[in-house]
Simulated scan of single mutants.
Amino acid sequence: MQSIGNAVDALKHLLHDHKNRKILCVTEHWRCEEELIPKVNDLNLVSHVCRQKGKHGGAAVYINEKLNSKPRKELNDLSVIGQFECAAAECLLENQTFSVL
């Protein structure tokens, strides 16, 4: 299994083939906060959870740069590192607001 850091080119290729996507959720990114990619194609990193200790794990939410979105830190705080790691964002799409976890 590759981490997102080792698979950026493959991810960009996948996203290029799926141009209508608006949101990308990633688990097991295996990165600390400083190593996360802030933008992939037209998707911005909106929310993330990283492990401070140990290996692997993590979650991230990327949302299209044209959409109104914001992190939902209070939902991220529900994470139990090593058991349940949750990145959450709020997004406005077609006049509806919803949470992405």
Rank of each mutant, 00 (worst) to 15 (best):
L75Y: 01
G54L: 02
A59V: 02
K39D: 03
K55L: 12
G5W: 06
V46C: 11
E85F: 01
E74G: 02
L36N: 13
N95A: 12
G58H: 00
P71S: 12
P38S: 03
A10Y: 06
W30L: 05
Q2Y: 07
A89Y: 04
K70M: 07
D9R: 09
L43E: 03
S47W: 10
K12S: 10
F98M: 10
V80L: 09
P71K: 03
K39H: 07
L11P: 03
C91D: 07
N68Q: 11
D9G: 07
K22I: 03
G58S: 06
A10H: 10
K70G: 03
Q52I: 14
G57D: 03
L78I: 01
A88R: 08
S69W: 01
P38M: 07
L67E: 00
K12Y: 11
S99H: 08
R72F: 00
L92D: 09
P38R: 01
W30D: 01
Q2A: 08
Y62P: 00
G5Q: 14
C25K: 05
A89S: 15
K73G: 03
R31D: 14
V26G: 03
S79T: 09
N64M: 05
H16G: 08
W30V: 13
L93Q: 11
C32Q: 14
C50Y: 02
C32T: 15
H18P: 04
K73F: 00
D77C: 02
A60E: 00
G82I: 03
E94G: 06
K12D: 12
A89W: 04
R21S: 12
V40I: 15
A59E: 10
P38Y: 02
G82C: 01
G82K: 02
L101F: 14
R31A: 15
H13K: 15
G5E: 13
E94Y: 13
L67A: 04
D17Y: 08
A88P: 06
N68D: 05
N41T: 11
L78C: 06
L11S: 05
A88C: 15
E33C: 09
C32P: 04
G57R: 00
G54A: 05
L93R: 10
D9E: 14
K19D: 11
H13I: 10
L101W: 12
K66M: 09
V100S: 06
A88S: 14
A10S: 13
A87D: 07
D17P: 03
K12R: 13
V80T: 07
E94L: 11
K53N: 11
A88E: 01
Q2M: 12
L24A: 05
K66H: 14
V46Y: 00
A10N: 13
C91G: 09
F84S: 13
V8S: 11
V26M: 09
G54C: 01
A60P: 00
Q2V: 07
S99F: 07
K39C: 08
L92Y: 07
S99R: 04
Q83N: 12
I23K: 10
S3N: 10
V46F: 01
A60F: 01
L14T: 09
N95R: 15
K55P: 07
L36D: 05
S47L: 06
H48C: 15
S99E: 13
V46H: 06
E90S: 05
V8H: 10
L14G: 08
V100A: 09
L45F: 12
M1A: 09
G58V: 11
I4P: 11
C91F: 02
T27I: 01
G58K: 02
V100K: 08
A10C: 10
A10E: 15
I4V: 13
